[in-house]
Design a protein around this nucleic acid. Sequence first.
DNA 1: TTTGAAAGTTAACCGCAGCTAGATTTGCGA
DNA 2: TCGCAAATCTAGCTGCGGTTAACTTTCAAA
Lengths: 249, 249
Amino acid sequence: MTLENIKTKGLCGLNGSTPAPLIEDHDSGDADSITHARREYLAEIYRLQTSTDESITTTALAMRLDVTPPAVVRMMRRLAHEGYLKRQPYKGVRLTPEGEREALKSIRRHRLLEAFLVTVMKFGWDEVHTHAHALEAALNDQFEDRMDELAGYPKRCPHGDPIPSKDGVMPIIAEKSLSEITIGTKAVISRIRNHTPEKLRYFAELQLFPGTSISLVGRAPFKGPVRIKNGTGEHVLGEELAEQIFIEA
Amino acid sequence: MTLENIKTKGLCGLNGSTPAPLIEDHDSGDADSITHARREYLAEIYRLQTSTDESITTTALAMRLDVTPPAVVRMMRRLAHEGYLKRQPYKGVRLTPEGEREALKSIRRHRLLEAFLVTVMKFGWDEVHTHAHALEAALNDQFEDRMDELAGYPKRCPHGDPIPSKDGVMPIIAEKSLSEITIGTKAVISRIRNHTPEKLRYFAELQLFPGTSISLVGRAPFKGPVRIKNGTGEHVLGEELAEQIFIEA
DNA sequence: TTTGAAAGTTAACCGCAGCTAGATTTGCGA
DNA sequence: TCGCAAATCTAGCTGCGGTTAACTTTCAAA
């Protein structure tokens, strides 16, 4: 076989699978070509930014991303330089609108992927985070759209986290934690804000999912455990777990 | 919010998505931890190795992988050093059994992914190669098994390429190209050995898929075009296309 | 107001996987 | 058999994203 036709002949068989021009970048539909790591940083900043009012510190980010602070510092410098965020050394960072856009894109992909993995691929809600995290890097817009379609255009991930719209808008949802509501309240769980596999398996055992109707039967004083009732009966939850269960307000 | 509980609190919501211990390597089930690029090289060597009898040259590999020869040379040195292949400078390389095992694992993933993308995710057979190529890097064994299951344990990829078994055995299939068979033969297409999207779309237009029954009606002399007949009527195919269509012998 | 621990930053390194430029080997054709 | 072009290889560079070690800044408590 000559060298010339190696490139032009069969592709994926015993005879080969990857015609050179097909390898390329795979971010078709994106055009901008921001790296995956950058988007991950931006998404994490977004999450921190919307869950605290304080500005985002290097160490907090480093912990969340499981990297060392110097890695964060350098990435922040890059991202600031590229216009995704404003940075004040020693003070913290804040996303620019472009940064927020990328962050939301990343968050959308992650949650859409989780929804897809549960509804289409039948993974457990305790398993999807890890898979989604790995697969995120490989998605492009077309694939994202197909997952969206197959999963039935989900509005939330399996844990109840809202999925940003395709044009980058995060739905605003008024929610209250079980630790904040008054005794006697009947409501529907909207979100479980802890994705540790073990905790999720425990919640699943008690049939506590987004969508489950529950009523708050009682609460022990001094931030004590709460008693709740759902279809499967009455359950007692420690404060730590209770404050991670949210209901639509 | 204090730094301590940032790491331990909610994960994927507005409040966070990536608990540090979950990030890890994602090659669970593999244990060996060979990089994706290495596996891609090994797979490409395997494809070349089984489609020619000559030894694999640096330039051929470089073209197939769309990288420069020096990149190949260095990777070959690494892979030889790591025991995946035998290398004779200026002569070529040959996979060791370990190298072949990794190559087959990679090829299995690619083809399984293609099958999954077509049967479950409803992509066209002309689209799947690129998607599969990007997604391959993110798979682990559990995900691979789930795809296998959902796709119905396919034996071949959408183009008819056999899928190596989970324990690394490539099915041996006796096949003949349309350009090799005698006039009058009736047979079933088993494989299309060209994965260029345009060609695939053309084959699809003529309803020439693996599984399609055809008969060879005629062939013009001197490697001329062939006439074939299938459910949709009679078609004329140039020699170049004809030799890329295979039937089970 | 001072000071020291914690947080943030800089400097310098790593491996991976690309690249170009230039040297070397090979082997075919004259 | 000899020489030259093509193939191969070496050397040295890039960017990415990670690390450790050491330095600087901040801020709260004494």
